[in-house]
């Protein structure tokens, strides 16, 4: 078996003495999507921020293509250049037009010639139905459009893996469909993804593996169908019952 793109080994992290991650083990194989579910505060977002080296971990290791990236000697900028992240609130740059915001990193951080970066960005915009939006500012876009721009900005750097932190509050139903569609499309394109989400439909339909996080640990893991339809652990069952009671899958 080949080396997984991402491997998390016994990662722990505490903020101000409060444990957030308590020994997480996780693997994301190439061209697969691993989805993390769990209540707010279960550690999903924190783990994503740790993988991107935006937050230092306390113990354990994170490997990218077999290389330990949490070694203090590793240059975080180099690691971040081969990873991409979509934030919960998108964190688009409000002062930049859509096209500039997408080409910023390819040009400045990856040294791709401007023309080439623009051409590629336009192709991505067209692919995600935003061809006529390249001169808009983020506040001129709808929520769904902002989300797609955030995604394009992330994948424009051709990352080895895409980290997605889905918004924790309920997305409007139209948006859920849109996000699902986009992620399916990325999977077809062979993208490797680690996704934190609250949308169970999402977990069931696109995930190669679903991990249930509870208090900073992976309590249960399995295929999407198995996890959503017949969870084994009582914590998973409780969580799913709560989720399914409040929203339709």
């Amino acid at each position: 078996m080949s080396v997984p793109v991402l491997e998390i080994q016994g990662v722990t992290k505490a903020f101000d003495g409060k444990p957030v991650l308590q020994g997480i083990d996780l693997k994301v194989e190439e061209h697969t999507a691993v989805v993390m579910i769990g209540a707010s505060g279960s550690g999903k977002s924190s783990l994503l921020r740790c993988i991107n080296l935006l937050v230092d971990i306390d113990d354990g290791d994170i490997l990218l293509d077999g290389e330990v990236v949490t070694d203090p000697a590793v240059d975080p900028q180099r690691v971040r250049r081969s990873l991409a992240m979509v934030f919960q609130h998108f964190n688009l740059f409000p002062h930049m037009r859509v096209l500039d915001q997408i080409t910023l990193a390819p040009v400045k951080a990856h040294g791709i010639p401007k023309d080439e970066a623009v051409e590629e960005a336009r192709a991505l915009l067209a692919r995600f139905g935003l061809a006529d939006r390249e001169r808009d500012y983020p506040d001129q876009l709808s929520g769904g459009q902002q989300q797609r721009v955030a995604l394009i900005r992330a994948i424009a750097t051709r990352p080895r893996a895409l980290l997605r932190d889905e918004i924790t509050s309920a997305l409007d139903p139209e948006l859920v469909g849109e996000v699902l569609e986009v992620v399916r499309e990325l999977k077809v394109g062979g993208m490797t993804m680690l996704i934190a989400t609250h949308e169970m439909a999402f977990a069931r339909d696109v995930a190669d593996e679903v991990c249930f996080l509870h208090q900073g640990r992976v309590v249960e893991r399995g295929t999407g169908r198995q996890m959503i339809e017949s969870p084994q652990e009582p914590e998973t069952q409780k969580f799913l019952a709560r989720m399914l009671a409040t929203r339709a899958v």
């Binding site: 935006l54 992240m85 951080a109 900005r153």
Partner: peptide, 24 residues
């Protein structure tokens, strides 16, 4: 979050300051 996003796309700290934080 703006700084986080700038670093996440691969910019250096100085670039994040120059292109993302200072203009805002």
């Amino acid at each position: 979050g703006q700084r986080g996003a700038a670093l996440a796309v691969g910019l250096s700290r100085a670039q994040a300051m120059r292109f993302v934080i200072l203009p805002q």
